[in-house]
């Protein structure tokens, strides 16, 4: 009935074994049903680049890419990501070379405190993959799922505008 093999836990429902590809690396993991993808990344795998700003899908700081699509990792159960290909901010650079969006964020000073930045970046990669943003207003609307309390929106917009052409050419996720 279940595709995964539950293992026994002391007085609590069973843990499950899942396989996924994380930043290009295949991983096999034991997860409790109630562990979110975000808590798995941050607390168990020490991939703290993905941030917890609200834990309720209301800020976007936890945005990661699952099979190339941006989602809120805080509202996703790890156990439901079996077989998925997941990219976090730690996986955006390739061979030590920053992703065009990362580079543009630095050049445009598209952050201050940095806490929303990972989510903004992964969201922008998702935006590029979707190919639906063709104007400033469309970028604004389609980046509105990522709050920035420092208020660096002007620079975030500029950085994304700068990097979108390179993202399209590169076709990178």
């Amino acid at each position: 009935m279940s595709a995964t093999s539950p293992t026994a836990g002391a007085g609590l429902p069973a843990a499950h074994s899942i396989s996924l590809t994380l930043n290009g690396q295949p991983r096999r993991l034991e997860v409790q049903p109630w562990t979110t993808l975000l808590d798995l990344l941050r607390e168990q795998l020490q991939l703290t680049g993905s941030k917890k700003g609200c834990d309720h899908g209301q800020c976007g700081a936890c945005t990661v890419l699952v099979n190339g699509k941006r989602i809120n990792a805080c509202l996703s159960l790890a156990v439901m990501q079996d077989g998925a290909e997941i990219t976090t901010v730690e996986g955006l650079a390739e061979d030590g070379r920053l992703h065009p969006l990362q580079q543009a964020f630095i050049e445009r000073d598209a952050f201050q405190c940095g806490y929303c930045t990972s989510g903004q970046l992964c969201s922008a990669v998702g935006l590029a993959n979707e190919g639906r943003a063709h104007s400033r207003d469309e970028i604004r609307e389609l980046m509105s799922g990522n709050l920035c309390r420092c208020g660096a929106y002007t620079n975030i917009l500029a950085a994304i505008e700068d990097a979108l052409p390179a993202c399209r050419e590169g076709g990178r996720s």
């Binding site: 409790q32 109630w34 439901m80």
Partner: peptide, 30 residues
Amino acid sequence: PFAYARARQVDEALALRAGHPEARFIAGGT
């Protein structure tokens, strides 16, 4: 804490649900 099970077919999901009154279906989960 909750248990987790996966269903592949509608009937299978309904059968699981019938056996577990405490269960809820989850899809997007948002």
